[in-house]
Amino acid sequence: MRAYALRRVILAAPTLLGVTIILFALVRMLPGDAVQQILGEYPGYASDEDALRKELGLDKPIPQQYLSWVGHVVRLDLGESLQTKRPIVDELRMRAPVTFELGILAIFLGLCISIPIGVLSALKQDSLADYAARTLSVGMLAIPGFWLATLVITLPSIWWQWTPSPTYTRFTEDPVANLGHMFLPALILATALSGTLMRVTRTEMINVMRQDYIRTARAKGLSNYVVLIRHSLRNAFIPVITVIGLQVPVIIGGSVILENIFTIPGTGRYLLEAISKRDYPVIQGINLLLALVVIFTNIAVDLSYSIIDPRIRYSR
């Protein structure tokens, strides 16, 4: 298990290298007048163009620039924000947990919605309820999160003069207020996710319920409940976890939009602030962090198979 985990991490190294090259190139792809634009946006930053180039390390040869950037990244130094001159890592340390909380909450809510409906849909295959659930799942996938969020903010305020609180409270200060603020955006993020999860749960449950060992479990007189939970759901869960892993980038993308609408000070909001201010080091840093999250989620998903499915644990 440990050897496998190690091998999996080593295999991620080339991907990680590629990610840094792309992000490095992205900022160098800026049109030629970008330095002037930065100077226009931040007049106090440097005395003239040459000084700014030097400040940003743009005066050295490209390979040297790359190596020095990676060198800093490895030492957890993502540089400074052009706008605030604060270290980007410090800012991310404040904001990443917020986005993480939102994402975890969304996955939790997504599972709460999709597993019961997916299982029901599979048990009552081709019934009216099944059709309703399947149509619902396609519908949930089609609704754009930003529209749902706009409606959730607009309509209740028209009907009941109720608006979600605009001020964000940190979880450490007041957990209840924090969860209250996070609930709606998490639920909206969970909508599209549960659309996907419902379909997977249904398909997998239908497959699993046809297996011989389910018949065996029933034949030896186990209760429906035990067959359903211990024998079926556990086996159907592996593909569900895979799909959750695959949906992590989608959740991150959605959180960019929802953090902005619900004024949540997470990484997504930071990204949009940075983009509107042309704060390129910040854009680079956030992309790197989020790509890392995706890469390590994939590893975690692979490792989790071996926890859920003993066959995988022993064969490796």
Binding site: T15, V256, I275, N287, L290
Partner: peptide, 16 residues
């Protein structure tokens, strides 16, 4: 490598 980037995030960055 490309699949490691959350698409919306990298797209906004590219558009910027």
């Amino acid at each position: 490598i490309w699949l490691s980037f959350p698409s919306l995030v990298i797209l906004i960055s590219i558009m910027a």
